[in-house]
Nucleic acid binder design. Structure first.
Length: 343
DNA sequence: TCTGGGGTCCTAGGACCC
DNA sequence: TCTGGGGTCCTAGGACCC
């Protein structure tokens, strides 16, 4: 199940007057930002997610750009996931995507229709579904007929379904891999199925077999309902304008450390490794990390590590475009072992 | 027209240990 | 004129996803 233009449609729940307009959720105009989600009217003008907001406005000056309502998005997502979980084992992939294993049901295609209708009735939000024997194929199928589509790929027809599709549709094949494959004359899934494995080996090695299997729709991963536990928690910020003043940089670093400390603290966790990320105006990016002997989660302790990493890698005066702080090698903190208080 | 912010997983090399 | 082999921990970068 994949929600259609999720951020945009959540916005429309609260702002029905914006319906029918070219609309996008994303970074504010004037500032450095990108489109997170575009309405279908905006997509007609060529606007895509991950596009710079400034470019989107050039393409479509009448575009209405709004920022996302995170709490609302979270609560809509929860409602949808609750509905899905009534029908089978649920694996939540992101706020707007999930797998549900309905293989034990009598009439899966009819059931998916019911599920999508129910999501629409109970949340007023449109969603699309993909039904097949695997996660790999279902995910592609859910995207096949948006919005409010349902694509069913019957058992044994997976290869035929995938054959004409571009290899980038496959989860895990991004721009780099696609370009390497294109160089071998592989553009669509059927090319990948038929290419001699010997030609893939020198470039992809062990990965060649898995790559071919993907194009055939072979994927035996089960739907995994285990709750998601973060391995890392971080935050980063692109400055409105590049900064070079040490006091501004230190204040920003302090703020980032506070946010990281708060969020791992809330989860009752603590970290052994602190990583900073620096992006220069030319967009080149470095990360530097340090692992400390004990577990830390207070702002003060995280900041101490982050600050030393900063000055080992930054000469004050050098402009910085983006700065980030993240905590990893997360363990359970002492506080977590105490009973939590609720209202 | 410059390119967000939240993540995961993988690779490769070095340090260190037995 | 040689200099193992396996394992763990750590660091940095890159590909990829939503």
């Amino acid at each position: 199940m994949d929600m259609d233009a999720f951020f945009v449609n959540v916005h429309l729940l609260e702002n029905p007057d914006d319906k029918g307009k070219p609309l996008a959720v994303g970074g504010k105009p004037g500032q450095r930002g990108v489109i997170a989600s575009a309405s279908y009217e905006a997509r007609e003008k060529g606007i895509r997610s991950a596009m710079a907001s400034s470019k989107a406005l050039k393409l479509c000056p009448e575009l209405k750009l709004v920022s996302s309502n995170r709490p609302m998005i979270r609560s809509c997502s929860t409602k949808v996931m609750d509905i899905l979980s009534r029908y089978g084992i649920l694996e939540r992939m992101s706020v707007d995507e999930a797998f549900v294993d309905i293989s034990s049901q009598v009439n899966p295609p009819a059931l998916v229709k019911t599920i999508l209708k129910r999501i629409k009735n109970e949340t007023k939000l449109p969603a699309s579904g993909g039904l097949s024997t695997s996660k790999l194929v279902s995910k592609i199928a859910s995207d096949f007929d948006k919005p409010e589509g349902l694509t069913v790929v019957l058992p044994e027809t997976e290869i035929k379904f995938l054959a004409p599709l571009e290899i980038q549709k496959i989860y895990g094949i991004g721009p780099k891999t696609a370009s390497l494959l294109n160089n071998l004359g592989v553009k669509i899934c059927s090319d990948l199925v038929s290419i001699d494995i010997q030609k893939l080996q020198p470039i992809f090695g062990q990965y060649s077999i898995r790559l071919k299997n993907k194009a055939k729709g072979i994927d035996d991963r089960p739907v995994d309902p285990s709750p998601w536990v973060a391995k890392q928690q971080g935050t980063e910020r692109t400055f409105e304008k590049d900064v070079s003043d040490p006091s501004v940089v230190e204040d920003a670093l302090q703020e980032l450390c506070e946010e990281v400390s708060d969020s791992i603290g809330q989860m009752g966790r603590s970290a052994r490794t602190v990583t900073i990320k620096l992006r220069w105006p030319d967009f080149s990016t470095i990360t530097r990390q340090r692992t400390v002997p004990g577990e830390i989660n207070r702002t003060k302790d995280i900041y101490k590590v982050a600050k030393s990493l900063l000055y080992e890698n930054w000469k004050s005066g050098k402009p910085i475009r983006l700065m980030g702080v993240s905590a990893s090698r997360l363990g359970v903190s002492d506080q977590q072992k105490l009973p939590l208080e609720f209202e």
